[in-house]
């Protein structure tokens, strides 16, 4: 403990200190809330043919029975959630899968890999960076396709809604050519939506806040320097 020229804190001081810390955190949270970009409203994209669950396909997934599966049209429409929740059921089946290319396109000599998401951002509402409406995490499936097809794909990113793809192929629960990871080996790939740029307005409120905060920090830096110089002299 430090030398006794300092007074022990009183219970009132302890309480006041605790409240002050909580208030400071509340101020930071409130400030952060104030500086959030406004939500712009969601413009719904055209849903994939098999999508009938509203905005999200990521709720509880119940694996369909073999009989129900047999009633689906061939190739059977599937979602990534179904493939991951019921991998053995769909293993080796011809499937039709639709979504947005994201991440990186891996161009390999014989075939290429594209990761295709079918979460709400991919198939219904577009990227969060566009509208700031959140609807859960991402969900997708790896798709192996010919190099020339993959070369025309633009993956989704911060300022891009990626190419929308409709894929027909075989789902493999543990693809031997990929060291056992799940994937769809595409036999047919169709572009259903071109990639597009996502525009974000620059926030004037943030510019003003940045100028004010930087000015305060610079001012404090000067004060600190003066205080230090005085304490040395």
């Amino acid at each position: 403990m430090s030398p006794r020229r300092y007074r022990p804190i009183t219970t009132v001081q302890a309480i006041v200190g605790t409240v002050a810390i909580l208030a400071a955190v509340a101020v930071i949270v409130g400030m952060s809330q104030l500086l959030l970009l406004p939500q712009t409203g969601v413009r719904l994209l055209e849903a994939p043919e098999h999508e009938d669950e509203g905005l999200t396909n990521r709720g509880e997934v119940t694996c369909p029975s073999r009989e129900n599966l047999a009633r689906r049209p061939s190739p059977m429409p599937v979602s990534s959630s179904e493939l991951i929740e019921c991998p053995k059921l769909f293993d080796g089946e011809q499937v039709r899968y639709e979504g947005e290319a994201v991440g990186v396109v891996l161009l390999r000599p014989t075939h290429s890999w594209v990761h295709v998401n079918d979460d709400p951002y991919a198939v219904r509402i577009g990227p969060v960076s566009e509208h700031r409406t959140v609807a859960g995490g991402n969900s997708g499936m790896a798709v192996s396709m010919p190099r020339e097809t993959a070369a025309a794909v633009t993956p989704g990113a911060f300022r891009t809604a990626g190419t929308g793809l409709s894929i027909v192929g075989t789902f493999l629960r543990a693809d031997p050519d990929d060291g056992g990871a799940p994937s769809i080996r595409a036999t047919g790939v169709r572009v259903v939506r071109d990639a597009r740029s996502v525009h974000q307005e620059i926030s004037v409120r943030r510019i003003v806040a940045a100028v004010v905060f930087v000015a305060v920090a610079m001012g404090l830096l000067v004060v600190r320097r003066v205080v230090r110089r005085r304490s040395y002299t």
């Binding site: 500086l35 620059i202 943030r206 806040a209 905060f213 930087v214 920090a217 404090l220 600190r224």
Partner: peptide, 21 residues
């Protein structure tokens, strides 16, 4: 060109530095 996010880092850095200073 991620201006809004860049500004958020400037704000957060200035705020954090101010408290530290």
């Amino acid at each position: 060109g991620e201006t809004n996010d860049a500004l958020s880092f400037v704000i957060a850095a200035a705020l954090t530095a101010s408290v530290g200073l």
